[in-house]
Amino acid sequence: MKKRRINHETDSGVFADVSFLLLIFFMVVTTFNKAYELQQSLPPKTTNQRSGKIAKDRILSLYLNGKAQVLVEGEIFDQNYAYSLVDEIRRISAHPKPGVVKINMLPDTPYKDYVQLLTQLKKDKEILLDQIAQESLGKEFTFLESTQKKQILYRIKYTIIENEIPAL
């Protein structure tokens, strides 16, 4: 008796369906690594350094200890958890003269902590801009006209001073 030949051909039509499913999955979950930019303007180098006292209500002192912690006016915050500098920026902005944010850091403070702090300052400034826009004009900052934006931006002005503290 002759054996019947078995057909070993595989149906490849399903491949396309499976690939489509996988393709859609990866298209949905894909995020491309984006590079962000933090801009900074340095003051020109001068030989004669100005010294003078800055009013206490105009200055916000921040200390970075190199362990992802930041000391804000006597209170320690972990940089990995949410914290806010909005009230502090509002406090220094209330002064008629522009405020001063002084970032004190140790020589071995990692760059990551420094970038996180600058980012936090930038974010909190944006939150404060929105708050003031809502309080005075009843709108979000982004929806204001350019002249109104300028008025609000003028109210939140501060300079960042960086200071490297020698390690103990």
Partner: peptide, 27 residues
């Protein structure tokens, strides 16, 4: 990278009158 290295380079740039700096990061 330690901030002492970053600050050293910033000082060099400042002395060469390159005053605009952009930090590129992923955050």
């Amino acid at each position: 990278i330690k901030m002492s290295s970053v600050n050293k380079i910033k000082e060099e740039l400042q002395s060469l009158n390159i005053l605009k700096i952009s930090y590129i990061h992923n955050y």
